[in-house]
Amino acid sequence: MSSHEHHVIDLKYLLGAAAGLIILTILTVGASYVEIPRPFDLLTAMALAFGKATLVAAVFMGLIWDKKINTMALLFSLLFFFLMIGITLLDTLFRDRPFWIYN
């Protein structure tokens, strides 16, 4: 245990992640000016945002080198967020559609 050391993140990873984030931001803005049919415009924007989020979490927040439990905590929060939105949409998207079995 006494040999434990905190991982010092290499400078090249930090600067690389920052550069990657800037590039992805430019791509995100650029994509918004290109005519992409719905819903693929939103999907593109979200895919780019998740790419950026992954960079921040993995490199800046050091999850690559960290204990797995911390990554799990983050993934759990996303899982429950998606449950919340997914199940809510089952209501809001189908409000005025009667269920087939009743017809």
């Binding site: 429950f80 449950l83 919340m84 199940i87 089952l90 209501d91 809001t92 998207l93 189908f94 409000r95 005025d96 559609r97 009667p98 269920f99 009743y102």
Partner: peptide, 17 residues
């Protein structure tokens, strides 16, 4: 976390949910 809507059966939420 998956069952909250059973408090809302007569609230006007969709029949599917």
């Amino acid at each position: 976390f998956l069952v909250w809507g059973h408090h809302m059966f007569v609230s006007g939420q969709s029949e599917l949910s």
